[in-house]
Nucleic acid binder design. Sequence first.
DNA 1: ACAAACCGTTGCAACGTTGCAATTTACATG
DNA 2: CATGTAAATTGCAACGTTGCAACGGTTTGT
Lengths: 347, 347
Amino acid sequence: MAGGKDKGSGNGAGAIGQRATLRTISELTGLSQSTVSLSLRGGTALKEETRRKVAEAAKAVGYVPDRAGVRLRTGKTNVIALVLDGGDDSIDFARQMIQGIGQAIRGSRYHLTVIPEFVRTQSVETVRYVLDNRTADGVIITHTGPRDRRVQLLMDANFPFVSHGRTEFFTQHAYHDFHSEAFATVAAERLAAKGCKHLLMLVGDDSTTNHHNIVTAFRHATARLGIVGTVQDSAALRGRPDEIRQLGLDITRQANRPDGIICDSEMRAIALIGGLQDGGLHLGQGIEMIFKQTSDILPTLFPKLDSIVEDVFTAGEELTRLLLRRINGEAPETLQTLFEPSPRWRS
Amino acid sequence: MAGGKDKGSGNGAGAIGQRATLRTISELTGLSQSTVSLSLRGGTALKEETRRKVAEAAKAVGYVPDRAGVRLRTGKTNVIALVLDGGDDSIDFARQMIQGIGQAIRGSRYHLTVIPEFVRTQSVETVRYVLDNRTADGVIITHTGPRDRRVQLLMDANFPFVSHGRTEFFTQHAYHDFHSEAFATVAAERLAAKGCKHLLMLVGDDSTTNHHNIVTAFRHATARLGIVGTVQDSAALRGRPDEIRQLGLDITRQANRPDGIICDSEMRAIALIGGLQDGGLHLGQGIEMIFKQTSDILPTLFPKLDSIVEDVFTAGEELTRLLLRRINGEAPETLQTLFEPSPRWRS
DNA sequence: ACAAACCGTTGCAACGTTGCAATTTACATG
DNA sequence: CATGTAAATTGCAACGTTGCAACGGTTTGT
């Protein structure tokens, strides 16, 4: 072992050596470990003086409850697990999500463990691992599919979780989701108001529930607005950026090409713009665009570009709040929220 | 509690109810818990038959060692902690880093917990928290400064850690770092070869060691090459992207402006390009650029743009490998590696 | 034949915590 | 002063694991 011993790090006083436990405080105050434990956790029936003595001693020795002890005794891990999707469609998704979660558990006893997925597929392995290993008290999953097998598994196990994204299951579960129907509708209306007659909706991952929602809403909106609506949803769009770039170039060469594009991912929007530019087509000059914004990157390059913001940080916060309440026993059906897209019209 | 009970999830056989422990296997096989424990961990002196019996029983009941038990007994958390910097200079940094770490601990008993920082400053609080709470067996920190207080604290506590970035401390510690001197040198040489006479180095966070290394190497390189080298390093560059965008615009208006730019961050490169374009200046037409690439975003928009790649995924892998060896007791000075930048010339 | 060495296995204690039943202490009442 | 009751505190067991000393049994050496 390298640094395995004598880590008497930052306890308030300069005490060295062994870590402070309940026993330490017990010996220091002359009270029993039970009393100390009780007092520290805000027990109900304790003398004011006892409380004070314990609190002082605890502070003096820099007592921090041992997670392993608590976990062994109570079964609570005080950990929430984030299953991190392997894709990178939404720019800066991982960082913002994690920061949001971090914000929500700040000051609490909870830790965050992240379990990376290596393939973009709602794989059940990772979640099963969490279940089998009692890794956490609750799980956050993202990129949820309509009949997501992870959700199924978690519901079957009656394990607390919250999904970023809705499902089509009859049984209710906690979720927080971007309101992609509203996104599609608002975007279509905006483009129509700008005079567009032929909209192209560029969507990616067809395994998610959002994919379905967004396409349906788009179809409704264009029909209602009386304009042409095309959905571009080939396998190519889930491929490497250069494929989408090629698509952008192809569009510029089409006979009756769309005059408005809606893009549900900033990454794809970038690739597409690259392709359009290759074909000599520039935004605002014969073609309009609205994209779902998750970072500042595209707006930095094209400040006049319309976007609709999905705030992933806030999503992370909200997901965590919901999960914590779920862990605390609240009913799933009371833990379902949507994030309303916030349009940023800049042109 | 919501789903706190009866999580007899995915154990191989269909056994329900309580989780399998050593006791379960002990009762099943008639052997003592000690023997079972020993056998499961590959004890030395055991009959072949005993081994087999234990292994079979363990598999049958889907035994997974309880982390809390192990941790309480041995003091090992089997967790590594990543202190996640709050900044987003390097696009996709967090995701790739985490994926890389995930790859390196795949199949091992290790988990990853992520501790988000909320301010871009080598704050000691987070690390102290890890120390006080025995959160992990080892820590990974990023964006290391020359006299990073976190490093100081970790060294003082003799706690296993590895830093993404070097320091100036005399005492040796484990690190993995991007070879930013090589980056600056290679980039300057490339631009000089392309005929540039006046280089601008655009650097951001002056609190990191890399900042210093990169500037020094740049100064040496330009001197050696006999060309003008300017370092742009104002407070504005650490501000919002629009400030850097403004800088880009300003450059186009300068009397004797640089004809070659080196940028140590993809995010800043994007903002700068935006500003240059605002001023009517396009890359390759009177101005060249090389940037440190950490994602596919900029190359997707400007495929002909030269870059030098920093592979953050690989860095995450390597950092973890080093940390694991450190935890295992290897000497810090044997755990220091550099990542050689890989140039991607495309013009 | 007896001691020594070995093999394979086991019981026990401890890690730090909490819930519960039981105990002690304090205080008011008859 | 005995008694009852409430308030305050405590001892004990258990959560699942592992290290260690010790066990009985067999083999080897002298």
